[in-house]
Design a protein around this nucleic acid. Structure first.
Lengths: 148, 148
DNA sequence: ATACAATAATTGTATATACAAATGTATTTT
DNA sequence: AAAATACATTTGTATATACAATTATTGTAT
């Protein structure tokens, strides 16, 4: 992906600005590809992230704030993401008995099952998106991303 | 930025998945920082991008589709971005005389003036976001991003 | 000239997100 | 124990975005 080509400019820009625009364009492209993969399953990327977090709990329920900590979304919207997942039957929400301010969210069989279906297809998509990278380059990219 | 730390997981994941999550987290962080810088000027990142594109025209009007080509947004939303910018007095929109299906959009003095005000502050923010990178690393990062 | 297709932009609608305020519950202070 | 404070989540609201359908204009074929 060439920045100047994508945004159709011929004027050169400072390396810093170019880098940040580059990051935004690539992230957007990745997002679109992953959203496309998830679309047939009727889950958005953020809904999918919630499901992944819950699966990582291995049956242990998660509070809303726990889920939220592990995501980029704001608290209020995490509530609504969970709302959507409940409607789809992928998670359950109950009030925490120990502390009734909290809620406990668990993934259902249906949620686990759709994650299973997605896993393979997503893995393929990930390989496709990164097809031009060898392992050393991926390591190098991760090393550079650590600097942010 | 350490991925495992941010998403609070201790389980290791395939390098591909880690890289893509890393990209998303970094891009999100950059977005937030830039949005914060723009907030006092009451323009969103995408509105700002429209203004930058129009400034690059050096007085020449741009059609909506031209603007759209240079952005990641969908056509219909570009219309609405321009609507917002008109309300704020930063751009003007007129029907193209040669081809009345098209519209011509130009940046106003007010639009140029706010871009001028933003330029310096944004430059500072860009340097801040990339403070841990030296020039060679930025070059390397851009080279890797080209592979997407 | 009329019908049909292509182009350019807009509108409708559902969903997503940010931010502030509100709700309900628990803890601490006096 | 009552009042004040803190905590966990939800609701309200404005804005942003994706996708499909629509409008208006121009170009092309018969």
């Amino acid at each position: 992906m060439n920045v100047e080509e994508v945004i159709k400019t011929n004027q050169s820009m400072p390396l810093e600005k170019r880098t940040l625009i580059h990051m935004a364009l690539v992230a957007n492209k990745i997002d679109e590809e992953i959203a496309t993969v998830l679309k047939p399953f009727d889950v958005s990327i953020q809904q999918f992230n919630v499901l992944r977090i819950l699966r990582g709990q291995n049956g242990k329920p998660a509070n809303l704030s726990t889920i939220n900590e592990r995501m980029v979304t704001k608290m209020s919207n995490t509530t609504r993401l969970v709302d959507k997942l409940i409607l789809k039957g992928f998670v359950n929400r109950t009030v925490c008995l120990k502390n009734r301010r909290k809620v406990e969210i668990v993934i259902t069989e249906g949620g686990l099952s759709i994650l299973n279906k997605i896993d393979g297809i997503l893995f393929e998509a990930e390989k496709r998106i990164l097809k031009n990278f060898d392992e050393a380059e991926l390591q190098e990219l991760n090393k550079l991303l650590n600097k942010f």
